[in-house]
Design a protein around this nucleic acid. Sequence first.
DNA 1: TCTAATGATACCATTATTGTATCATTTGTA
DNA 2: TACAAATGATACAATAATGGTATCATTAGA
Lengths: 133, 133
Amino acid sequence: MNLLSRHTDYAVRALLYMANRVGERVSSMDIHRDLKLPRPFMRKTLQVLQKEGYLVSVKGHKGGFMLAMPPQKIRLIGLMRIFQGDISLSDCLFRKKLCRCVAVCPLRREIKSMEAVLVDRLSGVSLADLMVR
Amino acid sequence: MNLLSRHTDYAVRALLYMANRVGERVSSMDIHRDLKLPRPFMRKTLQVLQKEGYLVSVKGHKGGFMLAMPPQKIRLIGLMRIFQGDISLSDCLFRKKLCRCVAVCPLRREIKSMEAVLVDRLSGVSLADLMVR
DNA sequence: TCTAATGATACCATTATTGTATCATTTGTA
DNA sequence: TACAAATGATACAATAATGGTATCATTAGA
Ligand code: FES
Ligand code: FES
């Protein structure tokens, strides 16, 4: 099971890269060169991060990106939500609900429990945590 | 996030249907008629269930399927494993690992914890549980 | 003014999932 | 015995999600 999409994956890597170069302007070219991520695709990732307020961008020659907030504030769950939508498991695991009334569903408590744990664990992870490796 | 594939979904529905008709032979046509599942596709689902030992099949005229075990023994996690493979979150959430050495990864404990909860919760759910709705 | 960068967007490719069709084989029944 | 109704096996097709490329306009430093 794949919890992260490429966009999320690349976002973390790119942000991590920039977190290690605070103060510098980092271009998509830099990241591409050093991290070997497919440039045009990852460029879109960065643009989204900029729109979402995670990055500050400077256009033009010698332009590039910089973190818009400290690594402690960037949390994995936030990035996942941006690129993969809400990680809710919804009311029912099935495509069309199985039980007459969701309120009586014997699976509901399990579903909510799983959901809570996932969100909780992922919320606990910040970019800063990943820097200390 | 979608935890169940169509095959798993259909498997549960079909098995549930049969669990309510113990002793009878249920054909794919019956299920199709009553549950409105796409027949050729769901037929494959049934064939897999047969191969995996969940169903006994009888070929020929008036043939069909029957549960090969009591509903208490059929667990959601088992069906998921068959149709969707292991639900392991693997060692690293990322496509290529982020950390020098997985052993030092700060995410590992979270990953394992999430995995354990998922498997645990899903293991707790049997077909019998879903019948009482 | 040239060049190297981002912004925006349209398009393409790949893969996974979902679904259909077909034919061989089996078996109850008229 | 022939027919019909079922599964077994398998190949094929459609769809959707994901991943990736290309292009052009705009911006700004040298
Ligand atoms: S409503 Fe979905 S399993 Fe009960
Ligand atoms: S090895 Fe994957 S995040 Fe650490």
